[in-house]
Design a protein around this nucleic acid. Structure first.
Lengths: 185, 185
DNA sequence: TAATCTTTGTACCATATGGTACATTGGGAG
DNA sequence: CTCCCAATGTACCATATGGTACAAAGATTA
């Protein structure tokens, strides 16, 4: 069913653009490329969003909403062990189908450290999200902090090499450490 | 002393361009910007290197040479503890003066995961370098692998937030774990 | 129906970019 | 001195990019 009013059309366009960004693994698509991928035209993108910047902002907001839903606190069943949660996270994030999403997140993070305030905000929100989600699986704030950094390093290695195993090994090792110090509960 | 022959001039130019890349924290500088930073002209850059791509290749090679010298196996005195070595590495890498170098390395790594074969090669060489350097401080290959990923995640967080402390904390924690399992030697 | 508002295409523009053509200079070799 | 080749500047070109002008075609409303 085709969208009826202008707001619906805008929303449909932003969905399609986000899909294109995810597929490309970056926000760095020209308006023409983007429009083609979204089955629209540069003319219409500018018409509905006013500028490329505004379009990007809309797409990022939608992306953040999705990630919030997917990685919110309580996204995993309460009962499962830290090992299971960690393993599941890694398997999800490094699924081939998720690669675009991971690349796009990394692209935003990179924009953050290259000076983009929006990129920095995105990064900080993801950190917060994951921290809250992990708090119920890991024993203390320090282990959450370590996990986050280890996971990000693992993700970076995965992106650069395509090898899921390196990260899986180190995360398993991390889980093992958890166990050794917190063998119960 | 001014360079005399054509090869010297080329080398001087590549040094200056590398310095510009480091200062910018990325290879993504236009030839004009680059030329200005190198006190030369686009015309001359093309004259000496033939193309932007060749220029980048030269600069990357020089960069790799420097990193090889700085992070080679044996770069640290044999006797020092893993804690000291790790702490020193972190302090060096996150020194404000090193920020451009870190950014540039990350930029190359990103190019690697965005499809650049050269970027991938750069990344793998750095991994190899650091592995060899760390082998004499860490007890086994697994801990080296974990350390590398943790360090890279820490560096990413440092770049995105500017906060050196987060990484310092998790690396100290990692050192502590080492100690707990390998209290002697 | 007439008037108005939204949507859309086509052609265009200004700017940036990597790179080239051409002419000029300047120093060393014969 | 003259010839030649490297070095260099200026102007230029083709392409890509974000964005705009203008006009036409629907759709909506008075």
């Amino acid at each position: 069913m085709a969208p009826e009013n202008s707001r619906d059309r805008r929303e449909e366009l932003v969905e399609r653009c986000l899909a294109a960004f995810v597929q490309a693994g970056t926000l760095d698509l020209s308006l023409d490329t983007l429009a083609k991928a979204a089955r629209s035209s540069k003319r219409m993108l500018v018409h509905y969003f006013g500028s490329r910047e505004a379009l990007e902002e809309s797409a990022i907001s939608v992306l953040e909403g999705r990630l919030r839903a997917r990685f919110r606190a309580g996204a995993f069943p309460r009962g499962i062990s830290a090992e299971t949660a960690i393993r599941t996270l890694w398997d999800q994030v490094t699924q081939p189908a998720s690669r675009g999403l991971l690349l796009l997140s990394m692209d935003l993070t990179r924009r953050g450290w290259s000076g983009s305030e929006r990129g920095r905000r995105f990064f900080e929100e993801q950190q917060r999200l994951w921290s809250e989600m992990l708090r119920e699986f890991l024993p203390d704030a320090g282990s959450v902090e370590t996990f986050l950094q280890l996971f990000q390093g693992a993700a970076l290695v995965y992106l650069a090499t395509g090898d899921r195993e390196r990260g899986r090994r180190t995360l398993d090792r991390f889980s093992g450490e958890m166990l050794r110090h917190e063998p119960n509960k």
